[in-house]
C-alpha cells in the first residue's frame, strides 16, 4: 500500500500558527492594561505570539500536504 503520511512538521506548524495568532491577539488586546506579572512592560505576548505565528506559518507552507 502506498502511504501518504502528512509530515509531522505540518502539524507542528499548524498548531504553532494558531497559538501565535491567539497569543499575539491577546497581547494586543491587553496593551492598555498589561497583566500584573514581572516585566509585563515588555509586552512579550505581542512579539512572542508574532514569532510563533511566523514560524508556524513557514512550517505550514513548506510542509503542506501534497497531492
Amino acid at each position: 500500500m502506498q502511504r501518504h503520511l502528512i509530515p509531522v512538521w505540518f502539524f507542528v506548524g499548524l498548531l504553532l500558527a494558531v497559538y501565535g495568532v491567539l497569543i499575539a491577539a491577546s497581547g494586543i488586546a491587553e496593551l492598555g492594561q498589561p497583566a500584573k506579572t514581572v516585566l509585563a512592560e515588555l509586552h512579550a505576548p505581542v512579539w512572542w505570539g508574532a514569532l510563533l505565528a511566523v514560524v508556524g506559518g513557514i512550517y505550514c507552507v513548506v510542509f503542506r500536504p501534497r497531492g
Partner: peptide, 15 residues
C-alpha cells in the same frame, strides 16, 4: 511561569 507569563503565554506554558 506564573511570575513572568501573562494571559496567552501562560496558556502556552501550561500546555
Amino acid at each position: 511561569l506564573a511570575r513572568y507569563m501573562g494571559p496567552g503565554l501562560l496558556g502556552l506554558g501550561v500546555t
